[in-house]
């Protein structure tokens, strides 16, 4: 199977990247165009905090050339603040916003990232089942921060439903979910959060993701990505260690490494 690999970052609109990734004189409105010239995919996280709108994503499409794929983190009302009475309407609203991306073939995936408080319990399992069924038409990725979900029943269920299990890179501290590479659909999805164990708990998002991967760590990821290539048709890789522009720096290095192995054009 020919496998397409795309590398990007989690978010692009970081003013602190100015002078590090973006040129010092580049206006914020030009960030996406500049980004899309260097990376062919981006994971949008703002959609977790506020419900995205079609017109907003349409504008992103217009500013990002013709080839950049967008993956969106599902809204918090679908993963963290779940209201049994209203989650279906939240999903409908979210799906409606994605319409321009779907129409132009630019939707990478929808990431459902569940918090550590989302336990492996009957109610939660029923909810997840219903959610995945309701979102059947979307390319779906799940990431669990609670390790209880990493068991064979969940693996089999994701395979049966063709839902991707995100492979994540996190610090080596107890309590975080195990690192798993498991192909459960034709799409593989990798999120690299950094390995800063000291700031992972109890700090703000910026310092939590303050980490720069070294070449040896990235080379190991080249091998993990390479191992997935015969089994999937697309691999999306996102660096979330955005602090101090480390994410685009690492993403660029990984691209070069993959090019060196002729895995990336």
């Amino acid at each position: 199977m020919d496998c397409e690999i795309r590398i990007g970052t989690s978010g692009f609109d970081y003013p602190e990247w100015k002078g590090l990734f973006y040129p010092p004189d580049l206006g914020r409105k030009s960030y996406l165009a500049y980004y899309a010239e260097r990376f062919d995919t981006v994971e949008l996280n703002f959609s977790y905090y506020r419900m995205p709108e079609a017109r907003q994503l349409e504008a992103f499409l217009d500013r990002s050339g013709s080839g950049c794929l967008f993956s969106l983190k599902a809204n918090q009302f679908l993963t963290h603040e779940i209201d049994p009475a209203s989650w279906r309407s939240s999903l409908a609203e979210f799906r409606e916003a994605l319409r321009p991306l779907v129409a132009r073939g630019r939707l990478g995936a929808v990431l459902f990232q569940f918090p550590s408080s989302f336990h492996y319990e009957p109610d939660r399992r029923r909810y997840l089942d219903a959610l995945l069924k309701e979102a059947v038409d979307l390319p779906k990725v799940v990431e669990f921060r609670n390790g209880d979900w990493y068991n064979n029943r969940v693996f089999d269920a994701l395979r049966d439903r063709g839902v991707t299990l995100a492979s994540v890179d996190v610090p080596d501290i107890p309590g975080l979910p195990p690192s798993v590479d498991l192909v459960t659909s034709p799409l593989a999805y990798v999120r690299l959060h950094g390995r800063n164990g000291e700031t992972w708990w109890g700090s703000d998002a910026a310092t939590r993701y303050d980490y720069c991967y070294n070449d040896a760590e990235l080379r190991a990821w080249v091998e993990r990505i390479e191992a997935m290539t015969p089994k999937v048709s697309r691999i999306l890789v996102y660096f979330n260690n955005h602090w101090k522009g480390q994410a685009p720096q690492n993403a660029g290095t990984l691209k070069e490494m993959l090019r060196g192995k002729e895995l990336l054009r």
Binding site: V180, L182, K231
Partner: peptide
């Protein structure tokens, strides 16, 4: 390895053994 069959990779941290096994078959 049994939980991943037929193919895959997993790394379980030391200290997380019981949690990892809890819901396995």
């Amino acid at each position: 390895t049994r939980s991943l069959r037929p193919d895959g990779f997993v790394a379980v941290r030391e200290g997380d053994e019981e949690a990892f096994l809890r819901h396995q078959d």
